[in-house]
Structures are given as C-alpha cells and as structure tokens.
Simulated assay, not measured.
Amino acid sequence: MEAFKSGFLPGNREDSSYQLTEDHTNVRLPQGFLDNNYEDPDLDRFLKEFYNREPQVAVIGDAYNREQAREYQEVIDDLLDDYPRRRFIVAPKSEEAFDVLDPETTTLGYANGKSDIQAEDLGPAKFRGRDVHLLGGNPVEAYSAIEKLTQPTIDGRPPANVVGYDCNLPLRMAYWEYWTPDGWQDNAGMTPRETARRSYREIKQYLQEKDVWPATEPRELYGPAVREPDDMIWMDDGGDPIGTIEDLEKAYVSEYEDKGKLAFQSKTQKEFIEHREGLSQI
C-alpha cells in the first residue's frame, strides 16, 4: 500500500500473497509485478499464478543454459498471443542464453541482488542494446548498474534501455530500519508501516534526483487503491469522523445517486441504511 501511494508498482513473488485480509474491505491494489521463486523455480506453478493475477510485468525465470532460455522464450511467445501488452523478463545466467532470448519480446533481467550468478559475472556489455530490468540491489547499487549499462563506451556500444527496477528491501527491513542514500537508519520506534513509507519516500527522492524516475506513476494508470468518501465521516456511527487511514482501508464505501460517496464501518449497517434511506448505488 505505502509503495503504491508513493508511486511504485506493487508486486510479489509467485509463492507469496499480498497479505490483505477480509478486514481490508476498501483496498484494491493492482497486482502489477510477479516475480518467480528463483531458489525453487517451477514454471508450471509460476504460470498458474500468472493466469490468476495477470500482472503487467512478469519475471519468468533464470536461464542457465540454451535449453532453459529456449523453453522460456517459447512460453513468452505463447503468452504474447493473449497478453500482447505485458512485459516478460528472463534473467540470462550464461552467455549462450543471450543468443536465444528475442530482443523484440523479452526483457533481460539484470541480476543485481543475491543470485548465485550476478549480471556482473557475465559483463554489463552483454546487456547493452537490449531492454533491461534490474533485479534487486539497493538503490545506490541499482544506479551504479544503470551507469554501467548506459554510459558512453570507447567502442561506441549502444546503451541498454533500462525499463525497470525492483527491490523488496523496504519491506524486509520495515521492523527495524529505513533506507537512505547514506545507509540504513534505525526507525526509532516507528511502526513497520511508517518505516516502509519512509524508505519508499527516500528511494523515490533519490531516483528523482538521479533523473531516472518515470514520468508516469502506476497510481496514475490504475487509480487510487483506497476509495475515499466525499465526507470523511461514518454514516452508521452518528457522523463521527474517520480517524485513521487504517480505519478507512477497512471501510465499506459506495457511491449513491443523490448522496455521493459514503463510508460505513459495518456491512450490515450499510445495507440497513441503504434500505431505510432508499439509497441507489451508482
């Protein structure tokens, strides 16, 4: 939620969930990014989750040899028939994989986190002239990779087109520290949510200052994740104000012809007031 509100595209690994519960009745997060479990890869399991979530960006897998690269490329070719406007990523882990992955359809994953074979092991030059997504690493490390992939070279190699970067560090560290360009800082008693929010804001500011932040943010494309009422009050609690963002996320919000958007704490009371007042939903 905090990532999306800060301008990032929400995502998760295919063997994990968004951890939203039935209490989050007023939260609708886009499932924009789907990563694979690189430590326990299973293409069938991944594809099942892909069809279920239909993300905009999907990391298909790591190609350690020509055969794996060919298998992933065939999967992407098939998926493109039904999902022509998605971005599909494969991380090459051998030199021969580069020759198989189609530059017209496949984005190269640049392993920059904890993978056993890093993109640096293969050489940034192999990724030049291709669409590239940075897989992991903190923002300083990511920007260093961007420089290596795009700076002019003596032999005039074309730069890579760096189209994306993902990082799960703000969530992993949210109980203890938040990220800054000067390193991780103690959260001094902030809640995990407040800590993650601080990390996302620091990361965004850092990338904006480096002039690598996108012109259009996902929230502009998907709309807000939480529907807000016209008046921030509870209709089923005497008009008391909605006290926190967390309360709003648990609200039942609907839009009505004469009343606009109204918020209720209880689904039962919402339905009762709709019946009593003769409210018609839009």
Rank of each mutant, 00 (worst) to 15 (best):
R219C: 00
E67C: 10
V90W: 01
T195Y: 09
G11P: 03
G156Q: 08
L29W: 10
D182M: 04
V132I: 05
G11V: 02
P103E: 00
A119G: 15
N26I: 09
F8R: 02
G183A: 06
D78F: 09
R130F: 04
A174S: 15
H133P: 09
S16D: 14
Y51D: 12
E220I: 00
E49F: 04
N12E: 12
T216Q: 10
L101V: 02
L207H: 06
P30H: 07
K261H: 11
V163T: 15
R86M: 09
I154E: 14
L108W: 03
P139L: 01
S266L: 06
A196V: 03
I203G: 06
K5S: 11
V140A: 04
V226S: 08
E22I: 11
A174V: 01
H275I: 03
Q281C: 11
D211P: 00
D182G: 01
I76V: 14
I245K: 11
A69W: 11
K48D: 15
Q118C: 05
Y64E: 13
R28P: 09
A97S: 09
S17H: 11
P30D: 09
D231G: 00
F33K: 01
P30A: 04
G156C: 08
D121A: 06
D81I: 13
P84V: 02
T195G: 12
G123W: 08
A196H: 02
A69V: 09
T105Y: 07
R157C: 07
F127Y: 15
K204C: 08
A174I: 00
T150W: 05
E249G: 10
R45Q: 10
T107Q: 06
P139S: 03
P152M: 00
D166V: 11
K204E: 11
Y178K: 02
S280C: 12
Y175T: 14
Q151Y: 06
R193G: 14
R86A: 12
Q73M: 02
G238I: 05
E104P: 14
G239P: 00
A215T: 12
A142T: 09
R128M: 08
Y83P: 12
M173C: 14
D211Q: 14
S144A: 14
W184R: 07
F4M: 05
E141N: 12
K126G: 08
L207E: 03
L135W: 05
